[in-house]
Design a protein around this nucleic acid. Structure first.
Lengths: 157, 157
DNA sequence: AAATAATACTTGTACATACAATATAAAAGG
DNA sequence: CCTTTTATATTGTATGTACAAGTATTATTT
């Protein structure tokens, strides 16, 4: 008999903690799909954006992926090393292009994303999964809005 | 006039992506509160568990924080170095105790957590924040359940 | 046109986190 | 009691991500 009391700690109700924990679980699911491609999910999503808009720049990637420019640089470095993208600079701006090698992977990558979607849709139910995703995205926008407002005011001194 | 079309990409609807992005925003909010204490939010939550149960072991911390044992070891290493916890081993098991230094920080840490809670409650609305946290926690449990089932079956060969 | 500011990207560094491998101790089976 | 298995914790190593500082280029002001 399992007498474990549902030891309720402050973490259970903490949005920050729950989000972090949930993210790491989803990461596991994602890694299952992307491992055969030898890509991390994050790198894969950058690649998809590059396929969508060849010549896209780091700044735009940063905006779309909601990652800092330095992180984008690191991702691109890594993808360049694997010969999956090419950098082309013109003055201070940089353009990122897919290579033949990565274009050959375009379909498998899209498929892995779709499989990930199907996986968590099956676990959570399609509707619930969509709702949750939407609610999280909305909350995210609210937080971003707040933070950027704070930053603006801070800068005034 | 801002003519930017709401360039809708596949990321907007991806639960994994949204969760990751949201987590990183919440992390920023959390860091604001914990920075004055020179603690990361993750280390702080480990400390709170140690206050709650002095002598708690890494395995239990791993379970409660949903982090791998190796990560727990690393956290403890770091807290030991800062003289915020003490390790006491008995055979193969390890017990973690707070130090005077960390006990002096107990109230400030709890307060930082509460302030974080208030911050995001204010941004999202108390009810919405609670609901979201709950929905994420529930989804998380479902994913964990699925993954652990998969692992069990895998191991049978 | 020279000086200054703003922009775009990169680099150095640091932290959270995980996996695989290892060490050690405890438990179970013969 | 010895051997094998299992459980616990740590270490080596790698990745994702960020911040602060640096570099180089373009824009603005004087």
């Amino acid at each position: 008999m399992n007498m474990e009391t549902p030891k309720h700690n402050f973490l259970d109700t903490c949005l920050f903690f729950n989000t972090n924990a949930f993210y790491r679980q989803l990461l596991k699911l994602a890694e299952v799909e992307f491992k055969p491609l030898k890509l991390s999910p994050a790198h894969a999503s950058l690649l998809l954006l590059v396929f969508e808009t060849p010549g896209i720049g780091p700044k735009e990637l940063s905006r779309l992926l909601q990652l800092t420019p330095s992180t984008i640089t690191r991702f691109i470095d890594s993808l360049v090393k694997k010969k999956l993208v090419r950098r082309k600079s013109k003055g201070k701006t940089v353009f990122i292009f897919p290579t033949q090698k990565s274009m050959d992977m375009q379909t498998p990558i899209a498929l892995a994303y779709k499989k990930l979607y199907l996986t968590y849709s099956q676990i959570l139910g399609t509707t619930k999964a969509m709702e949750l995703s939407h609610n999280i995205a909305t909350a995210n926008k609210q937080v971003i809005e707040t933070i950027s407002t704070l930053e603006k005011h801070e800068t005034q001194f």
